[in-house]
Design a protein around this nucleic acid. Structure first.
Length: 379
DNA sequence: GAGTCGTGGGC
DNA sequence: TGCCCAAGACT
């Protein structure tokens, strides 16, 4: 740094263009210069060069990606995003699709209320907005499944509105930059005001994506790469030599354990008994094998006494699945039977399980009883 | 404001 | 291994 500053042949203008740590530049200028060089390339994103030329990402693509990315990693989202876009190229296609198809396509991505609201939102855009997404934060915020973050993100990224976009990445960057000691989530309004003050009217969409890229690649939860950060000369947490101390968060509660049983019935024709869960609540609207209630105590619910029909149910092991707020231990039972009418259930060929809206916990239970259920060997 | 709501990966 | 975390929304 000293060697460059001492180089008299470089004019101040050249210096400001060459250095991301120009002390005279604003936070936004430093960050955008960094983003121009180090942005991630993602399927739903327009490059900063194209964005500067006036090209905007498709609002449908931005919205779809943002909903999928809620509490979900980029890596997990990529194949789902491509699959949805190939199958439903326009928001009106998604609006017209059967909800069972949408739920089945979402299976495995988690937080299934997102898929239910995704469908509702597509229908609202198609029927109430002529198939065109609202182009303001307020208009977007009124749609199902679009909250504070997503409305601001779509407004900024798709419509270049100067919205204050704050997700978990931005919270981490801001809390470190200003060394905010107050714990989340109570400190959110203070952080949001900081973001609003930093957000530029020029390139607000790139600024929002740059903040998130910075949090994802440099200002990481553990071992942040502060030497590479465009805010390294401004960061109060770094000046205190402990950036990992931020963001401060409220203590978490212990995760309780619940117990239950799952029943895998298969006919000689290779059909399995399935049910559809009620629309609301845990795994709402998704497909399942019959199970007991999931209770806090290990009691009668973990024996075949509560099977969907009487018979010679065989124990097939226990599977453990960890949800957000409890751990589930399911005793799995299997039986060979003849197809019979079951109230509220249906018999599905095991070879067609991949097309079902089966959440991961149900795939685990089925696999415990039928080890090859989800392999090509049965197809 | 505090609970509810999935899943897979990293360390 | 157990814990934390990931582009949060809804009630």
């Amino acid at each position: 740094m000293a060697a460059i500053n001492d180089a008299t042949i470089l004019s101040p203008m050249t210096l400001s263009l060459a250095l991301t740590s120009d002390p005279g530049a604003t936070h936004a200028e430093k960050l955008l210069a960094w983003y121009d060089r180090h942005h991630r390339e993602l399927p739903w994103r327009t490059s900063p060069a194209a964005a500067k030329a006036g090209k905007r990402a498709d609002p449908y693509h931005v919205w779809l990606s943002e909903v999928m990315l809620q509490q979900t990693t980029v890596q997990a989202v990529k194949p789902y995003f491509e699959k949805f876009l190939a199958r439903w190229p326009k928001v009106t296609d998604l609006a017209a699709a059967p909800s069972e198809d949408v739920m089945a396509a979402w299976a495995g991505l988690g937080y299934y209320a997102r898929a239910r609201n995704l469908k509702k939102c597509a229908e609202a855009v198609a029927s109430e907005h002529g198939g065109i997404f609202p182009d303001t934060e307020e208009g977007l915020r009124a749609l199902p499944g679009i909250g504070d973050y997503t409305s601001a993100a779509v407004a900024a990224i798709a419509f270049n509105r100067p919205s204050a976009v704050m997700d978990g990445n931005v919270e981490r960057v801001i809390s470190r930059l200003f060394a905010i000691d107050a714990p989340l989530p109570g400190s959110k309004p203070v952080m949001k005001a900081k973001v609003a003050a930093l957000t530029p009217t020029d390139r607000p969409g790139d600024f929002a994506q740059a903040m998130m890229d910075l949090g994802a690649t440099i200002c990481t939860p553990k071992r942040p790469a502060c030497a590479l950060c465009p805010f390294r000369d401004d960061c109060l947490a770094l000046s205190e030599h402990d950036p990992e101390r931020f963001p401060v968060k409220a203590a978490k509660k212990a995760k309780p354990v619940r117990y239950g049983a799952a029943f895998v019935a298969v006919t000689d024709d290779g059909e399995i008994l399935l049910r559809r869960r009620i629309e609301s609540g845990l795994l709402g609207g998704m497909t399942e094998v019959p199970t007991t209630d999931w209770t806090a105590r290990m009691d009668g619910g973990t024996t075949p006494d509560h099977a969907p029909f009487a018979g010679d149910w065989q124990p097939s092991g226990t599977i453990v699945h960890v949800f957000t707020h409890f751990e589930l231990r399911l005793s799995v039972f299997r039986i060979r039977t003849v197809a019979q009418a079951i109230n509220g259930g249906w018999w599905e060929p095991v070879t067609n399980l991949e097309a079902q809206a089966l959440p991961t916990v149900m795939k685990k239970a089925i696999t415990a009883a039928i080890p090859l259920a989800f392999t090509k060997s049965l197809n």
